[in-house]
Amino acid sequence: MAKNTRDPNEMSFLDHLEELRWHLIRSTMAVVIIGLVAFLMKDFIFDTIIFGPKKMDFPTYRLFCRIATSLGFESAFCAEELPFTIQNRTMAGQFSAHIWTSIWAGFIIGFPYILWEIWRFISPGLYEKERRYSRGFILVASLLFFMGVLFGYYVVAPLSINFLGTYQVSKEVLNEIDISSFISTVRAAVVACGIMFELPIIIFFMTKVGLVTPEILRKYRKIALVIVLIVSAVITPPDVASQIIVAVPVLILYQASIHISSVVLKREAKAKAKHEQSS
């Protein structure tokens, strides 16, 4: 009779699925609970946060206005108000916007907990050395995400709203923006920048599994620069200063990713050489 050599601590595929299911359930519950709190804070979420970039006393507009004035230039950022209105055109539009905004608020605020649940799921499959190297993953990834969220909210969102809200193909056409369109513009800027700022973390893990190297990143740096400048030109007003403000942080992150990739490969080379010497 064959002896069962299976490790009793080893989980089967179905066990892993069950474990993953509970991590997803806990993450979803966290998003729902935080979203419920956000739902009850309707005035603050909408009047202060969501519609903040529509008001000309928004910090970004005041800063750009002061810069333009000090340089002796006229600027659209010094206007008294943006020339567009926000409207609701469907019966359930405002209620739907309220619910989905609350859910996205739950995701953004609960992002560190979601990361923690992901880490709890993957960490048992890592070696002790890999766990040590990845120590601080949740803290660093959360800081990068919230830095991206703040950058998206205070830079990309107001620049996009200022440009798109004042753009006209003809004076015969008035800008009457639907509430869902306005909220999606703010949400896209915030969430996209939050994820974009995770680039160093993504490169770290891609280097660990051998998908990228510093040489590959350096080879395609010029292409990345062109892509970043194109994206910056699309989401910002048509002036060089705004494009540079958006592009510089992304390029810094890209350069930091190259350095991180180099460090990862050097550590792995040292560990391999040490292992060969000991054996």
Rank of each mutant, 00 (worst) to 15 (best):
R221Y: 11
L143E: 02
L211W: 13
L36W: 12
I227D: 03
N4D: 15
G93H: 06
F39P: 05
G165I: 03
C193L: 08
T48A: 12
F197Y: 02
F205A: 05
D57P: 07
L159E: 09
I235G: 04
L63W: 14
D239P: 05
V37I: 15
G52T: 06
C78Q: 08
V240L: 15
K270L: 15
M206C: 07
I202S: 06
T185Y: 01
E198T: 06
C193S: 15
A2E: 15
T85A: 12
H98P: 09
F39H: 08
L229V: 13
S181C: 00
R62S: 10
P8I: 07
I203T: 12
E117R: 12
F107S: 00
F64Y: 13
C193H: 00
M196G: 14
G35E: 08
F44C: 00
A269H: 06
F107R: 00
I138C: 09
I103A: 08
E198Q: 15
I202P: 00
R187V: 12
Y154A: 03
A141E: 00
I138Q: 03
V209Y: 11
T236Q: 04
V250G: 02
M206G: 06
S278F: 08
Y167D: 02
S75P: 11
A76S: 13
G148V: 03
V250L: 14
G210F: 04
P158V: 08
S262E: 14
D7T: 05
R267A: 11
F107N: 01
D57Y: 12
K208E: 10
S181P: 00
K270H: 10
E19C: 00
L82N: 07
H275K: 12
W22E: 12
V248D: 02
V234L: 13
L20S: 04
S96N: 11
V37R: 04
E10H: 11
P112I: 08
C78T: 09
I202L: 14
M29P: 00
K3T: 14
R267H: 14
M206W: 10
P238K: 07
G148S: 04
M41K: 07
A105C: 14
L82G: 05
A79D: 09
L164M: 14
E80P: 00
G148C: 03
I114A: 10
K129S: 15
L265M: 13
A105E: 01
G152M: 03
C65N: 13
G210N: 03
V140P: 01
W119P: 07
P112A: 08
P83F: 03
L139A: 12
I50F: 13
F107H: 01
W116V: 02
L143V: 15
A79N: 09
N4Y: 04
I99C: 07
E215A: 13
V209T: 11
E128D: 11
S170D: 10
F39T: 06
I183P: 01
R62W: 00
T213C: 05
E130C: 10
G93A: 10
R89W: 03
